[in-house]
Every structure is written in structure tokens, then in C-alpha cells.
Design a protein around this nucleic acid. Structure first.
Lengths: 233, 233
DNA sequence: CACCTGTATATTATCGATAATGAGCCTGCG
DNA sequence: CGCAGGCTCATTATCGATAATATACAGGTG
């Protein structure tokens, strides 16, 4: 939100964020304030601030006097988020087209990285470049509110959290869905690009739906880890 | 976010929020932590938490060691927000239509209040019922992520902040723009309802643009109130 | 008089300690 | 054996005090 926060609470926030992203912290894991404070050799206060910020990013949940824990993301929520993402990117494309004036070099750059990752089967890379690609279009819209709204969907977190559970991703085929929208953008046809991007999001959503229906195993979100241990130890 | 926070920081947050909404706190006003703490007869800590939360709601801005102040909303941002709102409500209508199964009673209720307010020239009432109307459709989508995204646009704050500067609102004419989308929803045609709602948002956006171009007087956002006073007093 | 530099002050960021709360355990009763 | 009530403790929420920082002003310099 603000340019250059250099305070402790921000360092903690960033560190915890990457732990959630890289899977060190899993859904349901508890975040105990004093424990984290000890680890960062700081007091409880900045930790609390960091946790509250993570909460506003919807990465964690909390309840008064009951603590904070990593939020799980249900399949339903993923599906909902793809729907929202679809219309946001549709708008982004419409706004971006007249601004880009056909200069889609940067976007094509991401696109080729997507294809490359797909070719070699690099799921992590695919996810990363895919996000860059989509965010690139959103940024090109030059609509700050739109960018914020898109960022708030936290697709980075969403995707990463589920990365490990992805089977048979058919990356090469999926990568192709990005080609047509870029072509449309290049010729300045934002409306078409938008429509295609929305369709793309819909198909991602559909894939998720299918996956969640077939993989019916333990789709429940870990509510919250039980309290540490007995104090008898 | 969470059901029942009863702690001090939440009370402070709510109180400050309404002050921003009702104009007691204006764009650029500084929020000094210890000052607020004294007023609520509490310590600095819960005030800080409240301020951070307001920041995540984008009602205030802050910078490290420089404090917190009420955020101004530029005409440009309003225009951007209307564009985003348009596509979000388009999606909302599409999702809502099949769920409502023609039962638009609740929405019509808001609609008639809009018309009534327009008839008697009650700007405040119009704004309120207008928000109820739009949010009602968003809620009917039953897409939690969408609802969150819409709420994050903070149109309540946006509209209220600018309420005082509205001239010649042509309420009656504007109110009519809501009729057709509801008709479409009633007959289950979500796509049409969505298209109309988006068009409606576009026309709100356009009105704002026109207004901001004609009212060129002091459209600058108060950056930040100067520090209290000299310590010489 | 414009501009730079140093200093005082207001204010934020953080600390360590205390109060408040909820979760689990244990007991005794039915 | 199941369950309600009280107790213990881990943990959060808040406090009061201190460290760190930015801003305004004063004074000096060209």
C-alpha cells in the first residue's frame, strides 16, 4: 500500500507471507504471537500488526483471544475467484488495448515463458509466468482500482497453495489459451481480448470444478490446529 | 471479517469510520494516535490497530513515522472505481438471475425507495437506497469473493465523501436507469441485466467525468494537514 | 534574501509487563 | 460411563514507558 515501510512489522509480514506461499505454513497452522516475536527477536506488538495485515489480505483468519491461523481456501472459493477474475481481466483488456497501441512486446515475453514452462513441464514456472502474464494485462489497464481489486484476489497465494495438489495439468494445451487474447490486444481489439480472457478464466474455473468433483478426498479445510500441547509436559 | 470482535480496537475503528463517512473527518485530516487514545480513554496500541485496519479499507493513508491521515478520493479514482463496479455488477447479475428465479421482491423494494427519494429530492436517501439496491444484487450472486471485491470498492465512503459537492443531480432521471435491469432479472435474463447494469455504471462514470471537467475548482486532494501547531504557543 | 544545517519537539514504532479470555483438564455427580 | 462446573495455563489484548524518526523552526552563510 505504501511505498517503503521499513519497519519490523513489515519484515515479519513479508516473511510470513512467503512461508504461506511456499507451503512452510499450511492451512490451519496456528500463528502464535509471542512465538513469532521470539523468532524475530522482537516484541509482540509488531507481530500483531503483521498478523492483522495478513488478515486483511485474507491469508489468515483470527478470532479475539483465540488467535490467528492460516486460512484455507476451499474449492468453492477458487471457483468464485475465477469468476471474478474473469470479469476483471475482461475490463483490463478493454482498457489496456487503446493504451498499448499494439505494443504487446512485454506481454508476449511472459507468454513465451509460459509456453516454454509448459513445454518442459515446469509447473512452478508455469504458475509464475502465468501470473506475470495476467497481471501484466491488468497493469496495462492503468486503472489503479482495478489493479488493487485484482491483487486482492491473491491469486498468487491461491495458486501456490494448490500447486502441490495439481495432477496432469495439460500445460501445453492450457498455455495456448493465452495466444488469441494477445493477438486481439495487438490489433487493438480490446473487446475481443476481454471476451477471450473471460472465457479463459471460465475454463480455468471449469477445470477446477471438475478436479474438485473427482478428487473428493478430504476436501475439507483444516479448521484450526489444536492448541499446542498439554502444559503437563 | 470476523463475526464478533468486541475489543477496543474495533470500537475505535467503527467510530472513526463513521466520522469519515459523516464528514466529521475530512480528506487530509490527521489521525494522531495518542490523541485518539486519550479520547477513548485507552492506550496507543488499540488505536494503532484500528488505524491499520482503516488503512486496509483504504479509508486512510499512512507512512512510517509520519502518521495517518484521511485519504482523499480523486475524480480519477471515482471514474476508475465505476468502471470496476460495472463489471462486478455485470457478473453479479449473471450469477444472481438463476438463483433468484424471478423473485426480485426485495430488489424492487429498494428500487421503489430509490424512486421515492428521487421524487422528493432526498439526496441522502437516494444514495443510501441506491447502495442497498446495488449491493442487493451483488449479495444475490451468492459469490462470496465477488461480494468482498464489491465491498472493497467502498462505495459507501466514496459516495458520502462526495455527497456534499453534488449539484443538480437529476435524480428522477437517474433512478429510471435501475428499472430495466430489474425487469431483466425478473424474467431470469441475467446476461441482459448484467449488460444494463454495466451500462448504468458507465453512465455514472460519465456523469462524474463531466462534472469533474466542469467543476475545475480545487479538485486537488488535500495531501495532509500540517502538523498541529508550533510548540511556541 | 534564498539556502543549508542543526536542534527541539511532536509523533510514531517498539518494548516489557500485566490483565483478560478461552481451551482443555479434572473432578464429582447422576 | 457421560456430563456440568471449576481450575490451570497458554495465549491474546491492553497498558505505560522508551527509542527512533520526521518536521518545523532558528541561526548562520553566501
Amino acid at each position: 500500500m505504501n511505498p517503503d515501510r521499513q519497519c519490523m512489522s513489515d519484515a515479519i509480514r513479508d516473511s510470513l507471507t512467503s512461508r504461506i506461499f511456499d507451503g512452510t505454513l499450511k492451512a490451519g497452522d496456528r500463528l502464535v504471537e509471542l512465538e513469532i516475536a521470539r523468532e524475530f527477536d522482537t516484541s509482540q506488538t509488531p507481530v500483531r500488526e503483521a498478523l492483522r495485515e495478513l488478515e486483511s489480505l485474507r491469508l489468515v483468519d483470527s478470532a479475539p483471544y483465540r488467535g490467528t491461523w492460516v486460512r484455507g481456501i476451499s474449492d468453492r472459493e477458487m471457483v468464485e475467484a475465477y469468476a471474478v477474475r474473469g470479469v476483471l481481466e475482461q475490463l483490463a483488456a478493454e482498457l489496456a488495448a487503446p493504451r498499448l497501441k499494439g505494443d504487446v512486446a512485454e506481454i508476449r515475453e511472459s507468454l513465451s515463458l509460459i509456453h516454454e514452462s509448459a513445454r518442459v513441464g515446469d509447473i512452478e514456472g508455469y504458475a509464475k509466468h502465468n501470473l506475470d502474464f495476467h497481471r501484466g494485462i491488468v497493469l496495462a489497464s492503468d486503472n489503479e482500482v482495478l489493479i488493487q481489486s485484482w491483487d486482492r484476489l491473491s491469486f498468487e497465494a491461491r495458486v501456490r497453495l494448490h500447486l502441490r495438489s495439481q495432477h496432469e495439468p495439460r500445460l501445453i494445451e492450457r498455455a495456448r489459451e493465452h495466444d488469441e487474447p494477445v493477438d486481439a490486444l495487438e490489433r487493438g481489439d480490446g473487446v475481443t481480448a476481454g471476451r477471450l480472457l473471460r472465457k479463459h478464466a471460465e475454463s480455468c474455473k471449469q477445470r477446477w470444478l471438475d478436479r474438485s468433483l473427482t478428487t473428493e478426498v478430504d476436501e475439507s479445510i483444516p479448521e484450526r490446529q489444536p492448541v499446542n500441547a498439554s502444559y503437563l509436559s
